[in-house]
Amino acid sequence: MPIHNAKFTSFGSYVPKKVITNFDLEKIVDTTDEWIRARTGMMERHYAEPEEAASDLAYIAAQRALEASPLKHRDIDMIIVGTVTGDHAFPSTACILQKKLGMKNIPCFDLSAGCTGFLYSVDVAKNFIENGTKHNILVVGVEILSKVTNFKDRSTCVLFGDGAGATIISRTERNDISRIIDSVMYADGSQSDLLYQPAGGSRMPASQETVEKNLHTIYMEGNRIFKNAIRSMYAAVDELLRRNKLEAKDIDWIVPHQANIRIIESLADKLHFPMNKVIVNIEKYANTSSATIPIALDEAIRDKKIRRGDLVILTSFGAGLTWGAILARF
């Protein structure tokens, strides 16, 4: 039994202003609006400006989450940022965000788990709250994928967008119905080559050649990921349900990673879960990696879909491969 309970206190999100439609992409690569919509459900995505970095989006999302909560800046005692497209290789984007927020004397770090980065970060935060070490942790999922996209590869470049979502995870009273109930997180590093950015790290440092060959961009075997994604998210959700003696019909909402509507529909189908209780916004933002779930949660709460007392499952998969699921009462 943990000493304390953890709950989601508030959310905030931000996407950059520039909108890129499927029709805009038709002018860049050999693709069609029809193909993109049928295969992915995507219609638009937002791209950051050249001068905008991950911490800029994260800052606005974090400010919004703070404003939506009763908390002050000084109440935050830790920052975790889930991202694979941080401002720099180092220092962490969390430290840059700390500077922007004017917070002092707290630990700040980034967490790299591909598109599962937000769920992993929430899980870490949950443990710091439950063991009594921290009270209020700012968790952000942020990504600027448009800057690591290979616009010569039509099978990947249409899929990604930029955005940020933030939440504050707080210690809560035992009698509060709202709490993060359970989580499962997994990885399978033997499949790390299915989705990765080849150059820019110590394996293949930047050189003229890596730039010319477009190796600082996303490489993906979409077909293999597709099957893995459905199987892994289903297994994670199923494990959570069983362990908590729940059935799919007990769940009010599922908020899945927004990577492909076809993956989401297939997952819902396997779970015998109705699509009208699945939060979907992929048509507006495409895949923003670790930002998809916090953006979707922020919108669903503001649209009064997800309400206090609702039982919600979050589930994601991504590069690593990583995957996981979280069960929470809001």
Partner: peptide, 11 residues
């Protein structure tokens, strides 16, 4: 079917 339907079929 499209290519993703065939993956789902195999599954």
């Amino acid at each position: 079917a499209d290519s993703l339907d065939t993956v789902e079929l195999v599954m």
